[in-house]
Nucleic acid binder design. Structure first.
Lengths: 139, 139
DNA sequence: TCATATAGTTTGATAATCAAACTAGTTAGT
DNA sequence: ACTAACTAGTTTGATTATCAAACTATATGA
């Protein structure tokens, strides 16, 4: 007999795996890489941030990020803006077009979320949101 | 004011992002790739399966998977076993050593899950498990 | 001031990945 | 039963992603 924690752990893993596959499929269809959309998602969710911070959040080195941001800049999705007080640092910021991409992607996520909770009533959605919020805060 | 679905959607995305970063860090520390551990996780969770099915679950082409399974085989983590009825097909199966790696990784996940739900009582863990189970089934 | 640390870039090498061609085996329609 | 169409997996050739380490410019602390 498995413990409650083990069951929840496997539910988390299953969710993560399925969401990974979904996300991978979405981005491949658009011909972009998972890392690229991940960067856009982070910038969309947290706002403009320095290279270093973005690299850590996305899970790549700053060297790799330099190339990625070069490409994103060429594609007019982000721009490099000077950091106010530290002249070594550079903020990466979504352009209008980049924000649009983020919002489109976010809309796809929302559609999926609604689909996944189609059998839920309002209270259940709120409850799950509350529990997941507590999980996220403990991260 | 955001709708309940939007809030839940963003909770899901935040959870996914954080778990991605966590997983990436774990595997980088071990010097293995995200795709490799993903394959091991899928095999550990679902059991032996044909190349094609594994490729789809992991989100890569069968060509890429051939190389990956070659490497995993060299590392004695998986083995190719004949498919019972279809001689074109090959099952990829975790070896004893591969199963051990899976279990070690799973233990890390469990530790994280327990940490994330440290503030939960037993009923809340069960409830979250039940809700996530319904979400996973709707995928 | 100067040594040390940090942010970002560049470089050179390696690993991951894909699409397309290929081989071997299966299935369906006649 | 034959053959055409399909499917599973591998190989090949090219491209892309990635890293570690060296490098430049700026910041910080003793």
């Amino acid at each position: 007999m498995k413990s409650d924690s083990e069951n929840l752990n496997h539910a988390f893993i299953e969710f993560y795996e399925k969401l990974s596959s979904w996300e991978l499929k979405i981005v491949k269809d658009k011909g972009i890489s998972l890392t690229l959309i991940h960067a856009v998602e982070v910038l969309g969710a947290f706002g403009a941030m320095p290279m270093k911070e973005l690299a850590i959040k996305v899970g790549i080195t700053t060297g790799t990020l330099t190339v990625l941001v070069d490409n994103l800049t060429k594609a007019k999705l982000v721009e490099r803006v000077p950091h106010g007080t530290d002249r070594r640092s550079i903020l990466v910021k979504l352009t209008e077009q980049g924000t649009k991409l983020f919002q489109e992607h976010d809309a796809l996520h929302l559609k999926l979320t609604k689909q996944l909770t189609a059998g839920f009533n309002e209270e259940e959605v709120q409850l799950l949101n509350k529990l997941m919020g507590r999980v996220n805060n403990a991260f």
